[in-house]
């Protein structure tokens, strides 16, 4: 086993250094799909989280519990739900999203939305209550309050985006069920790892896994850089 890990590491370095066209293509597709779903999810989650956090309404607490529960929804459940919606007999079948990268982006967005919404709420609720009172007393409109508070919570929000990206890039259920792991079209690192492992190419799987980890590491490093730079 140790030998296979070492071999996998050597193969990963080899695949990266030799710029293996298929690995490069899979890696780029993985990044594009995961970053797209993270951006889309963030664009939806921040205003939704803001609306939930800044308003008092009946059932708010229950809604927050529901959002938190959905953090851990299995990826295959999301995959199955979306499959039923976009398969040719589903209500959105005519959009022909099944086995497409767009379908995978939608699936991953659905997967990470609860995390992004929940962490946005947590980031805003964690701020000093006096900040909002001060903004209101200064005559801020609702949207001005939200923008100012999001700015104050930006580091926590960046961390939330990093968590969302991590969940998106590492999931396999939606990628398999919605993408179908079609070579040259919807294959991403996680589905490729799954396939190679089932075919007994353990070293290649490990190599792809290491590339996946390096990608996650690079993105998190970037987020940390942004956070550090902003705090200075």
């Amino acid at each position: 086993m140790v030998n296979e890990i070492v071999q996998g590491f050597i193969q990963a370095v080899d695949l990266i250094v030799s710029l293996d066209p298929e690995v490069i293509e899979i890696t780029i597709r993985t990044l594009v799909i995961s970053l797209s779903s993270t951006l889309l999810g963030t664009a939806i989650a921040i205003p939704v989280g803001g609306i939930i956090s800044l308003n008092e309404f009946r059932g708010k607490r229950a809604l927050m519990y529901l959002v938190q529960t959905l953090y851990s929804v299995p990826t295959v459940i999301i995959g199955l739900l979306l499959f039923l919606l976009i398969s040719s007999s589903g209500p959105f079948g005519s959009l022909k999203l099944l086995f497409t990268s767009t379908g995978m982006v939608i699936g991953q967005t659905m997967l990470i939305l609860p995390i992004l919404i929940g962490l946005t709420i947590a980031a805003l609720e964690g701020l000093d209550r006096g900040l909002r009172d001060t903004l209101v007393s200064l005559g801020a409109t609702w949207s001005q309050q939200l923008i100012a508070l999001l700015r104050e919570a930006r580091f926590a929000l960046l961390a939330a985006v990093a968590v969302g990206f991590g969940r998106a890039i590492s999931e396999v259920g939606v990628a398999i069920m919605i993408g179908g792991n079609i070579r040259g079209f919807t294959r991403v690192l996680t589905t490729a790892i799954s396939l190679e492992t089932s075919m007994g190419n353990i070293s290649l799987s490990l190599a792809l896994g290491i590339i996946l980890l390096v990608l996650a590491l690079v993105v998190n490093f970037g987020v940390n850089l942004l956070q550090g730079g902003g705090r200075r």
Partner: peptide
């Protein structure tokens, strides 16, 4: 308005 505990942005 000035609060007892000033909020710091």
């Amino acid at each position: 308005m000035v609060f007892q505990r000033p909020a710091v942005f």
